[in-house]
């Protein structure tokens, strides 16, 4: 419960702080997380196009990673990645040892199907 009283909040339920949902973190919903092998990324931005959670981080026209504070782990980015599924991989959020190895390999660009 927020302690703000009725005199302090805007009337009529208006929200004046546009886009303040960024303060609400949905990253904790994830059962799976995407990992990113930057080296092989062709910056086609398919992941950005299809991310339902505006959680693909882009700088200077380049995909630079995930907003893991908000990414819900749906895996769409991995599924639409056209680079033989090597650039983005879905792994369990609570990674097992073999998955940790997988994460490292993806991130180092060494992962092979």
């Amino acid at each position: 419960m927020n302690a703000t009283g009725w005199k302090e909040i805007p009337i009529g339920g208006m929200i004046l702080d546009a886009g303040n949902s960024v303060e609400y973190l949905t990253g904790g919903w994830r059962a799976f997380r995407p990992v990113f092998g930057e080296a092989q990324c062709i910056n086609c931005m398919q992941c950005w196009l299809f991310c339902p959670d505006s959680s693909i981080l882009v700088e200077d026209g380049k995909m630079v990673g995930f907003d893991l504070e908000h990414c819900k782990g749906c895996g769409i980015c991995a599924s639409v990645c056209p680079v033989n599924k090597k650039v983005i991989k879905q792994v369990g959020e609570v990674a097992r040892d073999d998955e940790r190895l997988c994460i490292r390999m993806v991130e180092e660009g060494k992962f092979q199907e």
Partner: peptide, 21 residues
Amino acid sequence: PRELAKKEDRLAPGHRLCAGC
């Protein structure tokens, strides 16, 4: 996509639609 991705998203993250919506 590369040009479009330069613009700020008009829908911010932190909404509570289901994963994969």
